[in-house]
Design a protein around this nucleic acid. Sequence first.
DNA 1: CAAGAAAGTTAGACGCAACTAAAATCTATC
DNA 2: GATAGATTTTAGTTGCGTCTAACTTTCTTG
Lengths: 162, 162
Amino acid sequence: MLRAVPRTTKLTPKTAKPAKRTKASPAQSTVAREDYLECILQLIQSKGLARAVDIATTLDIAQPSVTAMTQRLAAEGLLTYEKYRGITLTTEGEKLASAIIQRHQILTRLLRHFGLDEATIYRDVEGMEHHISRKTLDAFDALTAELDRSPALVTRLREAMA
Amino acid sequence: MLRAVPRTTKLTPKTAKPAKRTKASPAQSTVAREDYLECILQLIQSKGLARAVDIATTLDIAQPSVTAMTQRLAAEGLLTYEKYRGITLTTEGEKLASAIIQRHQILTRLLRHFGLDEATIYRDVEGMEHHISRKTLDAFDALTAELDRSPALVTRLREAMA
DNA sequence: CAAGAAAGTTAGACGCAACTAAAATCTATC
DNA sequence: GATAGATTTTAGTTGCGTCTAACTTTCTTG
């Protein structure tokens, strides 16, 4: 049997190439990473420090997973970490975490206008937050401001939903 | 060496336990699965059939990955599939796919009101769509209706964003 | 209708992010 | 200061969804 010549399919991607998964990208921001950063900064703000056991509890994840991710984030320069000692966010990590938390809050504020139960709000925000661009976020923020200042609009909205 | 905080912290898990990952759930709906279903139904609607090569091109994924996922979806009863022949959605699969496409459209319509570039709209919808509950979707839909009927509101919004 | 091209599949591997079990380290208390 | 208990880390797996290389089947076209 003759060997088939490599096919070289060279596909033309859909619309705008969705950032192909080259394995060569080092400190890429993923959902899990963002969840950890968000959680860590919140723990630091509320308790003064972020311990693995608390991160694990908050994210409902096993402790060894926290260690693993901590080491990844440290390798990427987002936090500093000394074995068996503490975790500290680097400047970059803290900046990132702040942005993540802010994004979370903008989304939560918007969803709260819809009269949904807190559990739904929380779940949806958790899900969406990692996938929203700055631009859309700005729009959501402006939208929230409009809803804040126009109770009539909110009322119409809720009636339409029922 | 810091270490000066009570040990028995016992945080209350954020809000509502985020659906622990038991491996025992069989036909769970994931992001990738939804992307495939959406793509398959759209291909069927636009070309009459969904071929692996087109799915691969549309999703910017290698062909063997399509075969693999196709087999998974078939095993879960969402589509029917005969080797080297075609793909058909089952009733359940089509229902699911329709819902996914509808959700996609609701989101797109909302984002279009914000005057963003199509690429951003597309990327954000792609990202968010898999994580939005029916309730929030209804709210977004109502919101879109309000924006449709109130150009003044849209104008205020866009000005606030600039 | 026979090649060759195109499409589909199998086989084997990888990266991410999770898990469990068990070892290492730290802390509090006696 | 020894030691029990809490916390953290290491080691070894797992599942999902992806990849490439190489094969098989189907389609197309002279």
